[in-house]
């Protein structure tokens, strides 16, 4: 067994995208300023907040440099008064339209794609909410501009609820940091894995909720350093094992085939199964990929040389994972 914690932390530092990221913050602020300046006089009063992985601290840098930020816009409206949820979406779209090449109303948000010169592409997703409802809950505006009415609706939503849940899962900061690192590792694994195509990849939120349910802190107290020392490798390995074990072999009586199913429910509204949109064959692929990852991690555990272990991890996560070699020397403060 070798200690790969330094490598994992180095890897994490490379892939993480957090709210420290100044460029993203600037882009967001410019758009919010635009929104403030240009929003129609008819529009309701609103407040904004960060949501999504960016706000949760589980963001991962995109491989294609396609950064995204999720911003929530809470209009002080009652969804009963706006039968058509597209109306507030249009307030936002219209205020930002023309600012960049593309401002589009999509099913769950208004997306502004941002590209300037040789800079990377950014897109900022504005999720639109009604925040002054009779039941005290928040509702998200769903549907595209020209969807038929059955696809336009207000959906019960608690965008900050998951962040709160994740943040309050552990009282120790360091424990929570490990949880977030593990979520990022899983997202990176998903991104790097070419066997996931189209909607076949688990969503970031699905991986987040799996971690919320199954992740167990792996740490040990160092009596000399007088603090806990974290073992991300073990945490990851036991987490992946837990995911694998949560799959159930199911029989589809219509096609007569078996498939591996996994279900994971959002712990906040709308409490849906986050794997519900995946097809049976996509679920099978997911199961195989989880199993294959676990196999590789188990193999890592048998290695005695750092570089051998790292090479396997590069296969799982891509080149962002560093390859290091064992050092033959350690410093000493001893003398006599």
């Amino acid at each position: 067994m070798i200690n790969l914690q330094k490598e994992f932390i180095e890897f994490h530092d490379k892939i993480k995208l957090d709210n420290e990221n100044q460029i993203l913050r600037d882009k967001r602020d410019i758009l919010l300023q635009k929104l403030k300046e240009n929003i129609s006089k008819d529009a309701a009063v609103y407040t904004t907040f960060n949501q999504g992985s960016y706000a949760m601290g589980t963001g991962v840098k995109p491989e294609e440099e396609d950064y995204d930020i999720d911003v929530g816009i809470r209009f002080d409206i009652n969804c009963e008064d706006y039968e058509d949820p597209i109306v507030p979406k249009k307030w936002v779209r219209d205020a930002l339209d023309g600012h960049t090449k593309s401002v589009k109303i999509r099913r769950s948000c208004v997306t502004v794609t941002y590209q300037k010169g040789n800079e990377p592409i950014y897109h900022i997703d504005f999720a639109i909410y009604a925040n002054n409802n009779d039941d005290g809950n928040m509702y998200i505006a769903k549907g595209k501009e020209f969807s038929d009415d059955s696809n336009k609706f207000w959906e019960l939503s608690d965008p900050l609820g998951l962040i709160e849940k994740i943040d309050s899962k552990f009282t120790e900061d360091e424990d929570r940091y490990q949880l977030k690192r593990i979520i990022r590792y899983m997202k990176k694994w998903k991104m790097h894995n070419s066997n996931f195509t189209g909607n076949g990849a688990p969503t970031g939120i699905a991986l987040t909720v799996l971690a919320y349910d199954y992740f167990v802190v792996s740490k040990e107290y160092d009596p000399y350093k007088l603090k806990y020392v974290y073992n991300d490798f073990e945490a990851l390995r036991s987490f992946v094992l837990a995911i694998k074990n949560s799959f159930k072999l199911q029989h589809n009586s219509e096609t007569g085939t078996f498939y591996y199913n996994i279900e994971s429910y959002l712990p906040v509204e709308p409490k849906n199964n986050l794997f519900e949109k995946m097809t049976e064959s996509q679920l099978n692929i997911l199961y195989q990929e989880v199993e294959s990852m676990l196999g590789k991690l188990d193999e890592v555990a048998t290695k005695t040389k750092k570089c051998d272990a790292c090479e396997i991890l590069v296969k799982i996560f891509g080149k962002d994972f560093p390859i290091t070699v064992d050092k033959s020397m350690v410093g000493t403060s001893e003398s006599a």
Partner: peptide, 10 residues
């Protein structure tokens, strides 16, 4: 603590 790696006097 986690491996058999050689480290300085703990």
């Amino acid at each position: 603590l986690m491996s058999d790696d050689l480290v300085p006097f703990r």
